[in-house]
């Protein structure tokens, strides 16, 4: 290249649009690398930052998992929304069966169990151990009973309450009962826990933003001279911002993965005691962890928070640095 090509004294034309676009992609690769380099240059303190973010994310994630499991557990106890219909004493066996068939035709009903007075008495005497006392009775005091189990969609307190009201009006029904209080309490508890988890998630998400924002602020301060120099050479704020945005993104990604590991390890650690506990209740309940989509969601949220935190911080601090 001869000298006049090197310093041709005309206004710089810059590069073509296509070249610029290609360069932009290349720059992004370079800056992504530089951003990651920035983290590995200072492994210990950055590792701690990542860990702090991971823990902050693991708390709401853990709570969410507990909630999901709680919901699952409460669904497997859909007996809670079983409706017991105690029929009048004079209802005959045939009438009882007819009624049960009639109820079973309702699409909202999954199953109807018929408990005839004789059977009920037998079960009761076996379970209670009052065999002798019951033998003294000259008449079976127990009414025929239908145990109605609604399908899942009608198992909520509201829907099963409506069903209850309908059955209570049937002439043969002496008393219709739903263990509604218990269901209501469970649902209320889950709702409360959901709200608490959301609030905790929000607060800790904010904390993550602040942590990343502050880390990026320090990183900008450390590279103050460099920023001044590239500003003098004509770099735009967007150009200067990019590597810092990548740093934020990498923080988010590493923290997301660490958080996932933390959660999975804790779940693994809890698996055995929970299986033991469930065994005591004759349940084969096992703790379910994060699904694939939930894991990806977790890591995406973490990356998003990293990007947002650095974006909020970096623009302000880069604008404040002007070459002197």
């Amino acid at each position: 290249m001869n000298p006049d090509q090197l310093t041709g004294a005309r206004l710089t034309q810059g590069a073509s649009l296509k070249a610029r676009f290609k360069m932009l992609i290349r720059l992004h690769k370079l800056e992504a690398k530089r951003g990651i380099q920035d983290i590995f240059d200072n492994p210990l303190s950055n590792f701690m930052t990542v860990l702090v973010i991971a823990i902050a994310l693991a708390l709401p994630t853990g709570l969410q998992i507990m909630l999901d499991n709680g919901k699952q557990l409460s669904q497997s106890w859909d007996g809670a929304s079983r409706i017991s219909l105690f029929l009048t004493l004079e209802t005959s066996k045939k009438q009882t069966i007819d009624l049960s068939n009639k109820i079973r035709q309702n699409l909202a009903i999954k199953n109807v169990e018929v408990i005839l007075p004789d059977q009920a008495l037998k079960d009761f005497s076996q379970q209670s151990g009052f065999v002798d006392a019951i033998g003294e009775l000259d008449q079976n005091p127990l009414p025929p009973t239908l145990v109605v189990q609604p399908v899942e969609a009608y198992s909520t307190p509201f829907e099963s309450g409506k069903l209850l009201a309908i059955y209570a009006k049937l002439p043969q029904v002496e008393k219709a009962q739903l263990d509604l209080d218990w269901v209501r309490k469970l649902y209320a508890l889950i709702q409360l826990a959901e709200k608490a988890a959301a609030a905790l998630g929000l607060a800790l998400g904010l904390a993550v933003l602040l942590i990343i924002g502050n880390t990026i602020r320090l990183s900008v301060q450390n590279r103050r001279d460099e920023i001044e120099i590239v500003k003098l050479i004509g770099a735009t704020n967007a150009f200067i911002r990019r590597p810092f945005l990548y740093t934020g993104f990498w923080y988010g990604l590493f923290a997301g993965i660490s958080c996932w590991l933390l959660v999975e390890i804790s779940l693994f650690w809890l698996q055995q005691p929970i299986a033991n506990l469930a065994g005591l209740y004759q349940s084969d309940f096992t703790l379910s962890g994060l699904s694939w989509s939930q894991s990806i969601q977790l890591i995406s949220i973490s990356c998003g928070l990293g990007l947002l935190g650095s974006w909020l911080s970096v623009g302000r601090h880069i604008r404040a640095i002007e070459p002197r």
Binding site: G14, R20, L24, L232, A235
Partner: peptide
């Protein structure tokens, strides 16, 4: 001088071209 001490001589000189968005072969040549 105001050079960036954490980058090579090549990268220092290439900086204005990277900012202007040149193709990397063009950057190498220039």
């Amino acid at each position: 001088h105001r050079l960036l001490f954490d980058r090579s001589v090549f990268d220092n000189v290439a900086l204005p071209l990277m900012i202007a968005g040149y193709d990397h072969r063009e950057i190498g040549r220039r």
